[in-house]
Every structure is written in structure tokens, then in C-alpha cells.
Design a protein around this nucleic acid. Structure first.
Lengths: 182, 182
DNA sequence: TGTACATCAGTGAACGCGCGTTCACTGATGTAC
DNA sequence: TGTACATCAGTGAACGCGCGTTCACTGATGTAC
């Protein structure tokens, strides 16, 4: 594992993502994950102490992608609603490049085994967004942030179901922020 | 069952709600439900053909309460954003009276066994809300409606976690609709 | 009123299966001399 | 270069447990005569 740079571990995670496209996180089976990665069932436990740790790693890996994308997009914008408007499309874009969105965004929060990790992730994200609302002078920035995160996630799920970008949906998102496009 | 007016069936559903407070829907065990209702495990199958049917009934029963409440609240308001503003607090209020909100609102959509029923419920709700946005002249009323439903649900979950009404959160919800309170 | 019989909700032990986890083993790779 | 040994990722059969579902039985209630 140290020697091969984590190739098999990565392949297991890849397989997990692929399988999560089809169903919920709770539907992932250890042996299917192994089979999907082209390794035996026992190999799974060489790389992960338990199924729940795998789920947590999978979720983390999923969230990394939109997070990185948002950072890159907004690095040079000043805090405030403008930055939210600039950064929010990055979230569905970052998700859309991945396949298991619905399982991740809908299922993860209610998966008891990883609820804690997921909540932590969301809180970190919420804190970031809260800063923007505070800079914009909204009266209850934490609440606004929480709702906004939920809104963006819902939008991402909708795009995932439609299987393509939905500009009117993104415009509607922006409108919720207070912009009123024609 | 016909004779007793469905008392035991109701007690099973009550027990299900009570148990769903603690964990996810997927955590509900048939024998625990029976025990919670004070009946034997086998009795469960006298009243429900399978566990999945029970989950669907539970979710339906949960959604009925906010639905009724919204109808009652908005019956005499004209269509449009005003009606959304008037009706939306009814949703968290209707949920808050119940205990299993998080399981219902977060978990149900990703529970493969009842996904279909849940989606149907949401669609019905979304169509209703879509009418308001259309009346208000929003450019993409279906998208707005879907996002709004998600937003209200997220707000209800947040209130459930806080275990009390959150007026600033509700004000923030209203603000997303375009009102800009001081 | 009393007796025999039918019905059916309720019961919980037993069944069966799926699946996460373990473990003794294999064989490839690295190291010492 | 060759030999012996150590290490450790990979393997899959076997284990064990939890849990949904079944089923033969009980006993209360209703009905016929």
C-alpha cells in the first residue's frame, strides 16, 4: 500500500463512486466494492478498517471536488453576495463531474454511520458561506448560510437528475439571493 | 382490525414515529415497532404486508399533517408569493408537532424502498407551490418551486434540531422570497 | 339460556438469507549474508 | 550471483449475527340452532 502509492485504495473508492450512482450509500456492499475494483473481498479490509470508514472516505472525497472548485473560482472576489453568486455554480459543476451526487447529497446526512463526519463537513462549508452573508449585512447570516447551502445542494441534485446544466435553475438560485434578472 | 377501527395499526404507526425520533428510517426494526406498540412481532404482519409498506404509510402520515395545516392557513389568501409567505411557516409548525422530522425529511428521499412514494408526494407539493410562483410571475416557476420546497424543508429540519421556533430563520426564509425586512 | 362451531386478530419460535468481518494461507518483493 | 529468511498485500472460504418473514397455534368473539 505504501509501496504502490495507494492504487488499490483509490480503485476501491472509484468502484464505490461508480456503485453509488445506482443506489443509496446504504446499498453499497463490501464484496461488490471489491469486485468493482477487481480485487477480492478480503482486500477491502487491508485498506479500510470497516465499511463505515470507507463510506466516510467516499463522502470526503466527493466533497473535495466542489470545494476545490469553489475556492479556485472565488479566490479573487471580495467577500459578500457577489462571491456567493460567483462561487455557487461551481458547486453543481463540481458535483456534476461526479456520478454519485444523489447518494452523496441526499443519503449521506441520514446515514447513521457517517452522520458525524457529514455534519462536520457541512458546518465547515456553512461557516464559509456565513462569512459572505455577514459581509453582505444580512441580519441572520448563520441561518441564511445554512439555508443557502441546502438550496445549492438541492439545485445540484436537480441538475443531476436532469443530466445537464439548467441555466434557468441557476438564474432562479441567483434570484433567491436578491438579484432580480429580467 | 375492521372491528376495532384500526387501533393496533395506529399504535404501530405511533411506535414507528416514536422510534424514528432516535434514528433513521432504515434503523426501524420490525420487532422494535411491535414491542413499542405493545404487541408481538407477528402482529406487525397482520396489519402490514411488509416492512416497506409500513415505512411508506409512516411517511404518508407524516406529510399529511403539514399538508392539512398549510391548506387551512392559506385557504383564504390569493395565489402568489403572499400565500407562500403565509403558508410556509405552517410547514415547520406542522412538522414540529411531530417528532421524527429529521428521519422523514432527510432520510426518506434516499430510502430506496419508498423513494417512489416520497418522490410522488414531493411532486404534488411542488406543483402546488409552482402555482404560486407562476402567479407571482417568476420566470421559472417549477425550478423556483422545487428549490423553495427544499428550502422550507431545510428550515424545518433546522428548527427541529434547535427544538424550538426560530423567528430569525423564518425571517430569512421570507427574505429569500424577496421581502427585505429591516 | 346453552352448546357446538367458525372466524380471525394476535403470538412468538423457527427459518433463511444476506452481509460485514475474520483468519489462516499464498506468493511476490525486499533484505542479509 | 545464490540462498535463506522476513514482510506484507492480497485472498476467499467460513463465521456469526441481525433481522425480515413465515406459520402452526391460541383464545377471544360472533353466529346458528
Amino acid at each position: 500500500m505504501a509501496r504502490d502509492g495507494g492504487v488499490i485504495r483509490a480503485r476501491l473508492l472509484d468502484a464505490g463512486m461508480r456503485l453509488a450512482q445506482a443506489g443509496a450509500l446504504s446499498g453499497l456492499r463490501v464484496d461488490e466494492i471489491g469486485a468493482g475494483a477487481g480485487v477480492g473481498k478480503g482486500t477491502f479490509y487491508v485498506h479500510f478498517p470497516a465499511r463505515s470508514a470507507f463510506l466516510a472516505a467516499l463522502h470526503q472525497r466527493f466533497q473535495d471536488q466542489p470545494a476545490v472548485r469553489i475556492e479556485r473560482t472565488t479566490a479573487e472576489t471580495a467577500p459578500g453576495l457577489a462571491r456567493l453568486r460567483a462561487g455557487s455554480p461551481a458547486y453543481p459543476d463540481g458535483c456534476r463531474a461526479q456520478s454519485a451526487i444523489k447518494a452523496m447529497l441526499l443519503g449521506a446526512r441520514s446515514e447513521p454511520e457517517i452522520q458525524h463526519e457529514v455534519a462536520a463537513q457541512n458546518a465547515r462549508f456553512g461557516a464559509l458561506v456565513g462569512g459572505e452573508f455577514r459581509a453582505a449585512g444580512w441580519p441572520a447570516p448563520e441561518h441564511a448560510a445554512r439555508l443557502w447551502v441546502g438550496l445549492v445542494a438541492e439545485g445540484a441534485v436537480a441538475e443531476a437528475e436532469a443530466r445537464r446544466r439548467q441555466p434557468p435553475l441557476r438564474a432562479t438560485l441567483a434570484r433567491y439571493l436578491g438579484a432580480t434578472p429580467v
